[in-house]
């Protein structure tokens, strides 16, 4: 089947899509956007998180056909020439090690800060509880989200 989807503001189409393919597969293997990651492909790790019509979803759990005619924003669509403040904070605070969880965490943290300008630590933890990271122990991810929130709020 053919899937028409707007990805990062650009109208895209994918042909010969097998109906069982996930949105994650189409993004990674058919549209050249491997930024969303394939760590578990069962909705447990959050590494494939993308916006689907402004709602963050695990793209591994969305059938490609369900994205027909809708808007998808991936980690590749968050930066312009410069990094988004959330991305910059992850780099600056050492929140990236192997980085495989990072794209999903960036989208999840981006979404949190869109909804909650100055989240408490408890709110950050609840918001990111669906994203597994195996390298960092999360402490520097907390630092990064705090820093990005402060920067967005104009505190620093």
């Amino acid at each position: 089947m053919r899937v028409n989807v707007t990805v990062n503001g650009v109208q895209r189409e994918a042909d010969d899509v097998w109906p069982g393919e996930s949105l994650l597969y189409v993004l990674r293997e058919r549209l050249g956007l491997p930024g969303s990651k394939n760590a578990c492909e069962q909705g447990e790790c959050g590494s494939c998180t993308v916006y689907l019509d402004d709602v963050p979803v695990c793209s591994c759990l969305v059938a490609a056909g369900q994205a027909e005619g809708r808007e998808v924003r991936t980690v590749e669509g968050l930066a312009s020439d410069e990094l988004h403040p959330v991305q910059q904070a992850f780099v600056d605070k050492g929140a990236v090690q192997c980085g495989f969880c990072t794209p999903g965490l960036i989208v999840a943290a981006h979404d949190l800060l869109e909804r909650t300008a100055e989240p408490t630590d408890a709110e950050i933890r609840e918001a990111l509880a669906g994203n597994l990271c195996r390298c960092t122990g999360y402490e520097k991810i907390m630092d990064a989200v705090r820093a990005a929130a402060a920067k967005k709020a104009g505190v620093v």
Binding site: G35, E76, L83, Q87, Q88, F90, V91, V96, G99
Partner: peptide, 23 residues
């Protein structure tokens, strides 16, 4: 010192090529 890692920017952009991204 603690310079930033050279792959950090690529990783936060989703542009770092992991083995499963090869095509």
């Amino acid at each position: 010192e603690s310079p930033l890692r050279p792959d950090g920017s690529l990783k936060v952009r989703g542009q770092y090529a992991y083995a499963s991204d090869l095509w």
